[in-house]
Computed example of a mutant assay.
Amino acid sequence: MDGQAQQQEHTGHEADADRRAARRAYEDTGVEVAGGRLAVRRWPGRPGAGTVLAVHGIASNGLAWTRVAEELDGVEVLAPDLRGRGLSRDVAGTSTMALHADDLRAVLDHFGVARAVLAGHSMGGFAACVAARRDPARYSGLVLVDGGLGFPVPDGVDIDAVLHAVIGPAMSKLEMTFADRAAYHAFWARHPAFAELHGPDVAAYLDRDLTGKEPELRSACRAEAIREDAEDELRNPEVFAAVHELTVPARLLWAERGLQDEPVGLYAPDVIAASGLAGEGVPPHFVPGTNHYSLVLGHAGARVVAAHVRDAVGAALAEHG
């Protein structure tokens, strides 16, 4: 097959996936939590097929899980916008992994879910670890997606400087305004990690991160919530320890490339090897050909994540019925 034919086949697969994503029914719901109402995107599933509670990253929103949810057709997927992000922007109060864990439990209670598989991307992995460590009876499995394994930051280092260095444009957007949605989409199209990320589901994910009116649209992420979570994620010993103290089955998926598509990902191979996770019952799984974002927002990455999540759901159903 020549290059042109391969590209046409690839484009066809992408278009088919986008059409499938557009067909899966969903609903948006508000869940009462301390400080307000948490917005939750729910993709209903078949009775008895299990539930996944999906937790997004530090400057993201619940629609980051759209492509994974599409691959999990039949499984109920609950994807909240964490407090201070997306449609949960106005939930009042501080933002920490422990408070996110409380919010996640409230989501399960609202939908009457006794036990769920937790999936956490990036910072969502840290929140998921804390939630699973605190409430093991509510979670039957944990899939960490390029997150959950900590990097302590010394007290003297400025958190904003760390955030700008690590997440780059995702931090810069908090200080910017955009004339319209197209301008915001163009901002992300220039992001090196988004070069191959496109389609209506990615556009909807970006639109969910906008607030205000044209010509002064802004990111819906509250800067103070980002900073509070970063302080907790990067400096709280209890948060670092959570991934090493899990009592529910867990696994870590780690992307080949980084947050700005650097050749070495957030977790370098030597970091994974030195983490000790495999010996603690949290096997790491390398996902080649993906970066930190495409691991959930890209079709190929979403298929890998969904396969691991479906495996965790199946194992939980087999054990607990």
Rank of each mutant, 00 (worst) to 15 (best):
L252E: 10
L266P: 02
R181C: 06
A242N: 10
A268P: 13
P263C: 06
V153S: 07
R42N: 04
P237I: 04
R19N: 04
A161Y: 03
N291L: 03
D201L: 12
A106S: 15
I272K: 10
L142T: 09
L38F: 08
A182R: 13
G276T: 06
E9M: 11
K173L: 10
L259D: 05
A273M: 02
H185D: 12
T66W: 14
E76P: 01
A273H: 01
A230K: 07
D160F: 00
K173M: 12
S275A: 11
Q7L: 14
E262H: 12
L87S: 12
V239I: 02
T211A: 15
A220H: 11
V243S: 00
V143G: 10
G156N: 11
A193T: 08
A131P: 02
A22W: 02
A69W: 04
R181I: 09
A106Q: 06
L53H: 08
D28F: 02
A255D: 08
V271K: 08
E228P: 02
A137E: 15
G281D: 05
A193W: 07
L317V: 09
R251S: 09
E280Y: 00
V33E: 05
V153C: 09
G276M: 04
V287K: 12
T96D: 05
E70Q: 13
R42K: 10
A268V: 04
G141Y: 01
I272R: 11
H191G: 04
L252I: 06
S95Y: 14
V153E: 10
V166R: 11
G150Q: 11
H100N: 12
G156E: 12
E245H: 11
A22M: 08
G258P: 07
S95V: 14
G74M: 10
P192T: 06
L277W: 01
E319M: 03
P237A: 05
H299A: 11
D209N: 15
V91W: 03
I58T: 11
H185Q: 13
A131L: 04
R24W: 11
